[in-house]
Design a protein around this nucleic acid. Structure first.
Lengths: 359, 359
DNA sequence: TTGTATGCGTTATCAC
DNA sequence: GTGATAACGCATACAA
């Protein structure tokens, strides 16, 4: 009965303490905060630890201290490049800190999110970063049970669980459409794929802008529930052209779709922006390199990740968090793909465009 | 002296056991392997746990069992899309399993890698997935100390630490260059950025192929240590044109660079593939959508991640691992950007090309 | 299938 | 600044 005795080769705090001629708790202190140990013992402990090849046991530490240094991060996709920038910000900010990141992929599923949160809960995370505003009631209660600082990223809302950093997707898209309207575009299409909550809100912004301008037409909207891609951009654009051959601009819910639209225009010899203006969303790196350079809505994703991380750390370590809800804003980067230099009213006729190219 | 008593509100195995009328160890068994508990008790335990809102404590579990279900994954970049596919494979394979993934970003630094491995070691990971072959001796000894299954991914070598899955970057690039040579190209440029070990090996494959064909010329190689990007592709291509104006093809060490080259060609009115063939590497989704569609070397990154994960799980759970070194191969996807339909020898002169467009 | 006894390696607490 | 003691919550080993 009982359990076998200690293995002889094992190196614990105790062994280091014995070799250094101090008590275990002093070694423990040394590893967590060297400054709290006198210089003499510090040196002895350090060399003893090195000599024995001591490696702290995080599980024992977590059990004894009743907490961890794990930050749980939940994002909906590993493929969507949008999140890689956010992640880079998060990883950069935590780099060199004592915290380690545990990344989970919800796959755009709120149920997966619940399941993953439950998993995090078992670890007693030091902090949580979650994507978006649309957590289920169950998810929210799990988060509350975790009893740690939480930051919601990517969006903006009025009722944060704890803290929040992002921007308004409705406003950002509204601004993009307003830009197109200001360029004289009237028949502005909307292309969207995946249709996660953030894309839905961009669609809302589109609808608001078009209705406010008096040009709303549901036939101008083409969406698909499938993952977004360049090829999908071309194919949705083709669908859109069938429904609305008099199109003079396309807003794409993200840049991959916009790139696909651009290629499809090249294929069909549609002149951009003369015959069709294109606007994307996210301002990925390739947008500026395209021919013509593509207009997009820039969002500060890296900064979002970075600041989410610092907000978490500030909260954990008891520093005052200046703002609990941070609006990072956005910027419409106007490039050649939507810069028409034509006045409203001088638009080419809906069909039979000047160049006579096939659509 | 001593420590404060148990908080009254806390729910542990003991509390669940008391309510269910069984011993704690039975509850423990129920949570790890429900089948080992009789149906009657199973129901009682389940309802008791739900009633009390019991959440297992992973730290206590890890301490008592001397192991965890954490799989450490080390990748060099979060931005490079190549890894998002691999990660998706890894996450998909572990999804639903009892293992959880801890992702670390080495930023292409072997020292960071060492540091992160040391961190993993403290957690007693159940398995490790590391990128590439070029771990330092120190890293290797840390990995050995971790004493768990290890898979090296992305490349192929003869001396795996434990297991390995990937493909030969040298061979893959050699095949791509061979394809261009077969198309009649002779002045084939090489563009590379970042120059991590895998890009270095692709360069090696390029050099081998060009030397074997008797067309090697160091002026055809342009590289930069900076991160890869579409814009960098255009700019390196411009540099290359200065050094070798008689270029008839460009191999790009990755697809982002290739896209940049394509756009630069559009900008300079260089006809692809008639005046210049383009080949990329990785076969990202957008390559097929481009105008013209871009040739690339397809590598099965998703599958690589997925199988690395199953290899790890097999090893952990004592199932025999069929192959310890798995070659996933590659495939040159020939598309219009490099399909010339011209015979060797009928090449346009190096300068003053038929179309007379400006370079 | 179920229970008993014991140990996992560390830190919190309080005293010096 | 340093140390003695007890507790952290669970799983292992063995017996029944």
């Amino acid at each position: 009965m009982g359990r076998k005795r200690i293995e002889p080769g094992k190196v614990r705090l105790t062994e280091v303490a014995a070799l250094a001629g101090v008590s275990p708790i002093t070694v423990s202190r040394f590893f967590r905060n060297p400054d709290t140990v006198s210089a003499g013992r510090r040196a002895r402990i350090e060399s003893a630890a090195k000599e024995l090849g001591y490696v702290p046991n995080l599980a024992a530490r977590a059990l004894a201290s009743q907490r961890t240094e794990v930050i749980g991060v939940l994002i909906p996709s590993l493929t969507n490049n949008v999140f890689s920038d956010v992640l880079r910000g998060i990883y950069d900010a935590f780099d060199g800190s004592r915290y380690s990141i545990q990344l989970a992929n919800t796959r755009y599923s709120v149920l997966q999110e619940e399941r993953l949160l439950r998993l995090f809960l078992m670890q007693k995370p030091a902090g949580l970063i979650v994507t978006g505003l649309d957590q289920t009631a169950e998810s929210r209660s799990i988060i509350e049970a975790a009893d740690c600082p939480v930051v919601q990223i990517m969006e903006l809302g009025t009722e944060p669980i704890d803290m929040m950093i992002g921007f308004s997707h409705v406003d950002a898209c509204y601004a993009a459409i307003s830009h197109l309207l200001a360029q004289g575009c009237r028949r502005i299409g909307f292309i969207g794929a995946r249709m996660d909550p953030r894309v839905q809100r961009r669609l809302q912004g589109y609808q608001n802008a078009m209705k406010d301008a008096g040009f709303f037409d549901p036939r101008l909207i083409v969406t698909a529930p499938v993952p977004t891609s360049t090829i999908m951009g071309g194919s949705l654009f083709s669908d859109l052209l069938m429904k609305a051959p008099d199109l003079d601009a396309v807003f794409c819910a993200n840049d991959d779709l916009a790139l696909g639209v651009l290629f499809e225009c090249q294929r069909r010899h549609i002149a951009v922006p003369q015959q069709l203006a294109i606007v994307g969303f996210n301002d990925m790196e390739f947008m500026a390199a395209a021919v013509p350079p593509l207009t997009s809505v820039r969002t500060n994703r890296y900064e979002m990740g970075r600041r989410a991380a610092t907000m978490i750390m500030d909260a954990i370590e008891g520093r005052p968090v200046a703002q609990r809800v941070v609006d990072l804003g956005f910027e419409v980067i106007e490039r050649q793909s939507s810069t028409l230099h034509r006045t409203a009213g001088s638009l080419e006729p809906a069909t039979g465009r000047a160049s006579g190219t096939k659509w």
